[in-house]
Amino acid sequence: MSVEYGLTLTLLAFMLLAAWALARSDDLLAAVMLAGIISLASAAVFTVMDAVDVAFTEAAVGAGVATLLSVRALGVLGERRAAGRARVGLPFLVVLVCGGLLLYGTADLPAYGDPAAPAMQHVAPHYLARGGVETGVPNIVTAVLASYRGFDTFGELVVIFTAGLGVLTLLAGSGVSGARSEVDAGDRDIIVRQVVKWLVPFVLLFALYVQFHGDYGPGGGFQAGVIFAAGMVLYALTFGLPRLERVLPPSRLRLLAATGVWLYGGVGVACLLRGGAFLDYAVLAEDAVDGQHLGILLVELGVGLTVFSVMVLIYRAFTRQRHGGVE
């Protein structure tokens, strides 16, 4: 057994412990934190498994954004404990059947790390051997994501957009507007204010680095959008939502969210107009590889724009809610 495999197994066992604690706990905040821990541990597992882009995203999204939104929502909900009686019989049966089936199905999978596995044989070698040459992008994950399977990524962008649209639709008209101390004042503590004031520009700079360096290293539009949004949220937490809204009014955020989708789709349509297939970046420039590079740059920018603005819109929608209470 290799060291890496042992590390993976240890981390998985640790996650299983956390899941066990999660299942037993009635405390909702503890449940959120345990889920965050599981997510962060999975990011470590992804790193061990060479999936650096995935690890990056899971750490930013699963451990970061999901935890942030959950804690925000818990505050708005005013719920602390899950007191109701759990059902046991049917869930246990279903889990037993599904788990048994999966154990059966995974039993003859190729061993961990086997380079001769069927999954390694057919399509993947093409990406690894030709991806860098055909797209001019050394990070093959970015090449597959933005070009070979660019239509999936367009769909993924629409999914995020749909979520933002859905949150705005569901929470429309039920928010609080006008002055409210908790939302408005932010944090008055001088240490926090000073630290955040110094930190936010670096967070934004890092986001830009991740956005434009995604061709060469882990990163890309999605991770960059999340980090940029995190910088904005940090700013709003410290200096109050109104200060952020002065820079980024909701109407502008909505426009940006739409613009990201249009940019991605627009690149696709531009390819159509120039006689290629939808999202065939090769027709965008004289040289096919230059076209690929340009197309990937533009669609990643679209992803970054929409992800960033949707994240901030969602955060704002939850923060603007009245706490607790019944209609």
Binding site: V61, G62, L69, S70, Y127, L128, V144, T153, I160, G166
Partner: peptide
Amino acid sequence: NPLPHVLILTAIVVGIATMALALA
């Protein structure tokens, strides 16, 4: 193999989208 990485990047995004909607 980069392909599972790409697929899961998409799936992570779908996951957070579902979660945000569910919280609302």
